[in-house]
Computed example of a mutant assay.
Amino acid sequence: MPDLMMLGMLMAAIAIGFWLGRRDRRPDTQPPAPTSLSRDYFVGLNHLLNEQPDRAIETFVQALEVNSDTVDTHIALGNLYRSRGEVDRAVKIHQNLLARPALDSEQGERVQLELARDFMRSGVYDRAEKLLEALLKQAQNDCHRRDGRRLLIDLLEREREWEAALEVAHSILRQEGGIRRAAAHWHCELAALDITEGSLALARKRLKQALSTDEKCVRANWMLAEIEFDHANYKQSIRLLQRIPRQDTGFTPIILEPLGNAFRMLDDESGLVRHLHQEVERAPYTTTVISLAQLIERRDGVEAAASFASQQLHRHPSLRGVDYLLDLYLLDADERETERFNLLKRHTQQLIEARPRHRCHRCGFEASLLIWQCPKCRHWGTVKPITGLEGE
């Protein structure tokens, strides 16, 4: 990061030097000014080469008068301050630019965007929101309008203003898949509030809107299934849960417990067995294998369950699978074997407990519980159960 910052400073210094050089060559430039500015420039460059970026930036800012030729450089210097965490200085530079009547509309829109980013970085969301709303009303540049809309959506999401975010994002949902996925989760957030307030009809409507916005929104079917289960509509709950692996097979492990509960409420164990057999053939996750092995154990005995689990582990090794197989072996073990199996069991348990259960497929963030928005990269629906050798 420091190397990138120094590179940015160097590029800014080159830009300043280029502008000063052009200014020196202008016939209408007053003689004393170039000498003074050039001296300031070389002083700033000296600070930069001596790894004194603070003093270098201050010198460059003082050296450059604000005009149409230097706007880009001032913006770059302000952004450097923001990247260094010195947001107050970035705000000062960008506000100073915005107050200049010489800016054309394109430059003014760029400065507004950067100033909004400054305010967001410092947590002053209300001022950022006002800037961005004004920009969206008056922006003539399509790129600036698009960037401003994305920034405003990000701000409203941070403030958990789901309705407002949906309103701002409405016009670009079809073009941008990332926004569409996020919008589906905003509908789910609103539905969760409706459920808390007892407005189930409105919650159902919102969750259907989520699926209409993004047909692969696992969370919407998950929440609908919970509503149906709570109202004893077990068959409908099962149908909704069974849609989830078709939306995203990576979420298969999370449906097994509620699915099993719904089948048991219907006293339909054979239906659950059929479903689990289908899932094992399609995607043999450890959780699915263990769920099916437990049913086999209850119906056909320990030996049959151990045989099934062992076959599946041979095809798809898993730490949790080994741990479950040890449980089965302990049921038929003699005293000496019990001691050995318990030793192995302690090791597998320690390894399992030390491992996270979920991981963001976007940034790698790990968590013990399922969360719908990654707190690190802030993408929606990317945190999934960890599968494979050490996962579900």
Rank of each mutant, 00 (worst) to 15 (best):
M1P: 08
D3E: 11
M5L: 14
M6E: 10
L7N: 12
G8L: 10
A12T: 04
A13H: 07
A15V: 00
D24T: 06
P27T: 09
Y41H: 00
G44Y: 00
L45K: 06
L49S: 08
I57G: 00
I57F: 04
L64Y: 00
S68F: 05
A76G: 02
L77C: 02
L77I: 11
E86N: 13
H94N: 13
H94C: 09
N96A: 07
L98T: 12
R100F: 00
S105W: 03
S105H: 07
G108S: 15
E109L: 07
Q112I: 08
L115M: 12
A116Q: 08
A116Y: 09
D118I: 03
M120L: 09
M120C: 06
A134L: 08
L135H: 15
Q138P: 02
Q138L: 07
D154T: 14
E157H: 07
R160L: 01
R160T: 06
E163F: 04
L166R: 13
S171I: 12
L173G: 04
R174G: 11
G177R: 07
A184G: 14
A192D: 15
L193S: 10
D194R: 13
G198A: 04
S199G: 06
A210Y: 06
S212E: 15
R219C: 06
A220H: 04
M223I: 09
L224T: 07
E228T: 05
K235P: 02
R239E: 09
L241H: 05
Q247Y: 09
I255D: 11
L256P: 13
L256G: 12
L256V: 11
L259P: 10
M265I: 01
L272G: 06
R274V: 11
H275Q: 11
V280I: 09
V280M: 10
R282F: 01
T287F: 03
T288I: 07
I296E: 08
A306N: 03
S310Y: 03
Q312L: 02
H314V: 04
R315M: 06
P317Y: 03
R320S: 11
R320K: 15
D323K: 11
L326A: 05
A333V: 01
R336N: 10
K345V: 01
E353P: 01
H361Y: 02
H361L: 09
R362G: 04
C363L: 04
C363E: 07
F365E: 13
A367E: 08
L369R: 08
K376C: 13
W380H: 05
L389E: 13
L389H: 15
E390F: 14
